[in-house]
Simulated assay, not measured.
Amino acid sequence: MKNLKSLTTVALLTGTLAMTGCMDDLDPIEYPDAGYISIYNGAPSSPAVIIYADQNQVNNFPLKYAEVLSYSNFYPGDRLFKFSESNSVTSLLEKEFEIKVDSVYSMFMVENAGELDAVLVDDDWSEPNADEAQIRMINLSPDAGEVSLLIDDNETAFFSDLAFKFYSEFESLDKDTYNLKVVSSTGKTLATATNLELKGNRVYTLVVRGFEVTTENPKKLDLQLLTNYIDY
């Protein structure tokens, strides 16, 4: 489980929390109640989007496909997220999520058969150490079916049978350089990443994104590594 140190670091990384000055060393730092969310555009055919939480605009610049917004703080409770094209009053997607106090999430925009959706995922990692990385995988490819991850020459899948919009838990790996291969349920190689360095004190998400069949959409299936957290 994430401890207070992790949550505090995430809060500081947002750069948006107000802090009162002139406190002596023994006074605790009081943060307003909040949950923390990063947002990733994993919808291959979608335009760049402006995102709102209720009526509050989240991003100043449109979020393009395969781009991510770093963690920001959000008031707890039920929040209606709206995704719109820049300079448009029409929502492409509206979806409500419950945000809990002192919780950390990743939100992933996804697409299937031209329909947009969003998935909110708990970012529940252990406190990292200098010798290991933590990594999970999420399948955002709408047409790849169930996918598994093979590492180096190991024939046993590290993550197995992740369907569209499904994700693994965070797992630990020794810090090292790895060759990754994502395969279909039939064993077909869908995407690879060679000489990928995973560093200690890091928490990562491996995103499977894009289309296996690119007849109508040129954004082919590939892999993207996101960094959720660094323990400085």
Rank of each mutant, 00 (worst) to 15 (best):
S6P: 01
R209W: 10
A163D: 14
T227R: 02
S46W: 05
D117E: 08
Y105E: 03
L173D: 01
T9Q: 12
L26F: 07
P28S: 10
M107R: 08
D123F: 06
A163L: 10
T90S: 12
E212Y: 11
D222L: 03
K82P: 08
G210T: 04
E94Q: 04
A133K: 00
E146H: 11
S141W: 00
L93P: 10
T215C: 04
S38Q: 12
D174C: 12
N56F: 11
P47Q: 02
A18P: 00
I51V: 14
A133E: 04
L150G: 13
A163C: 05
S160N: 14
R209S: 13
N59E: 03
L198I: 03
Y204K: 07
K82E: 13
P44D: 06
G187Y: 11
L223W: 02
K165L: 08
Q57W: 06
P128Y: 09
F164D: 04
S168T: 08
T8R: 09
K95V: 15
L198H: 01
D222M: 03
D161H: 13
T214K: 00
L7D: 04
L221G: 03
S185G: 07
Y31C: 00
S38P: 04
Y75D: 11
S84T: 06
Y65T: 01
Y52I: 10
K175P: 11
D78C: 01
F170W: 06
N56A: 15
G114L: 11
D78R: 12
S38N: 05
L226T: 09
N129G: 14
Y40R: 09
L4H: 11
L221I: 04
K100V: 11
G200V: 05
Y75H: 14
L180M: 15
P32E: 08
K64A: 11
L12T: 12
V110W: 06
S38F: 05
E85D: 01
V182S: 12
V147P: 09
A48D: 08
E169P: 08
S46T: 13
A18C: 12
T90K: 13
Y178V: 07
K181Y: 08
V147S: 10
A130N: 06
A34N: 02
S91A: 11
L162I: 06
F166Y: 13
R136W: 08
L140T: 08
I151Y: 04
